[in-house]
């Protein structure tokens, strides 16, 4: 087993606190090609703890690519060099023996570093709170297929809803823009009948919160789509632009 191990040089971003100045620190590891990059960091942390050193802080939860908690920038790419996977699904077999790997946190003004590789993504929660929900009457469980929805529409809404809110789009964007995330969340509701009653207020509120949180604007470079672990299409951004234009011109909201 050890014979197959990869010897890698890691350059990991270490930053003790949000305001502190961070820097890369070098580590040498020997890791199985079958390990995921998070497992490699787990092993490294075990080593560091044995030596009474401060372990590297990073976030993870499900480790099967569906929760959106993990998110590292590996060699300049959010979630690493392999398309359409989350960081936890990146295995070391994609690297060669002797490689140097840069591991950094997501970088954007709206995602301040908490410590090392963990960033504060609560700005996304604020955007969801502003309009990423639908209102339903409580009571009995509605019958299945009570509201007929065209299969194509349902599939399209599902494609948008596949967004796991990891923030890789923001991390990849040269403008630190959250447009892909917001557009996916607006789209999944705008497409379905259940989302219609709050449709215009939703997009206005979510875009206003997005701007307030300090995210940049979209210059249509499409880096977000290239790095999205779920392959969310930039057509969602076009839909968001459309929804926002129509809502701004026709909603009942005249103040603000």
């Amino acid at each position: 087993m050890n014979g197959n191990n990869l010897n890698l040089k890691l350059k990991i971003w270490r930053q003790p606190s949000p305001k502190a100045v961070g820097a890369f620190k070098d580590y040498s590891v020997s890791v199985s090609p079958d390990a995921s990059i998070l497992e490699m960091l787990d092993e490294l942390n075990n080593d560091l703890e044995r030596r009474s050193e401060e372990p590297v802080v990073f976030e993870s939860d499900c480790r099967e690519g569906i929760c959106g908690t993990c998110g590292l920038v590996i060699n300049g790419q959010p979630h690493g060099p392999i398309p359409k996977i989350a960081t936890c699904q990146l295995h070391m077999r994609h690297f060669k023996d002797g490689d140097t790997i840069y591991i950094e946190p997501f970088r954007a003004k709206a995602f301040p570093v908490i410590k090392d590789l963990a960033v504060d993504r609560s700005a996304f929660d604020k955007i969801i709170q502003a309009g990423g929900y639908i209102s339903v009457n409580t009571g009995g469980v509605p019958d299945a297929n009570e509201i007929p929805i065209n299969k194509n529409i349902a599939s399209e809404a599902f494609d948008s809803a596949a967004c796991i809110g990891c923030g890789a789009c923001v991390a990849a964007c040269k403008n630190g823009s959250a447009m892909l995330f917001v557009s996916a969340k607006v789209s999944q509701f705008a497409l379905l009948p259940q989302g219609q009653s709050e449709r215009k207020e939703r997009v206005e509120a979510m875009v206003a919160t997005m701007d307030e949180m300090g995210f940049g604007s979209c210059t249509n470079t499409y880096a977000c789509e290239a790095e999205c672990p779920k392959g969310i299409s930039v057509r969602n951004i076009a839909r968001l632009n459309r929804e926002f234009l129509i809502a701004s011109l026709s909603s009942q909201n005249v103040e603000e």
């Binding site: 350059k11 890369f24 920038v73 060699n75 300049g76 840069y102 950094e104 970088r107 954007a108 003004k109 709206a110 964007c173 040269k174 403008n175 630190g176 823009s177 300090g214 995210f215 940049g216 604007s217 210059t219």
Partner: peptide, 11 residues
Amino acid sequence: NRKAKGSLYAV
């Protein structure tokens, strides 16, 4: 947008 990005990546 420059301000919104903040710092850049090493790679």
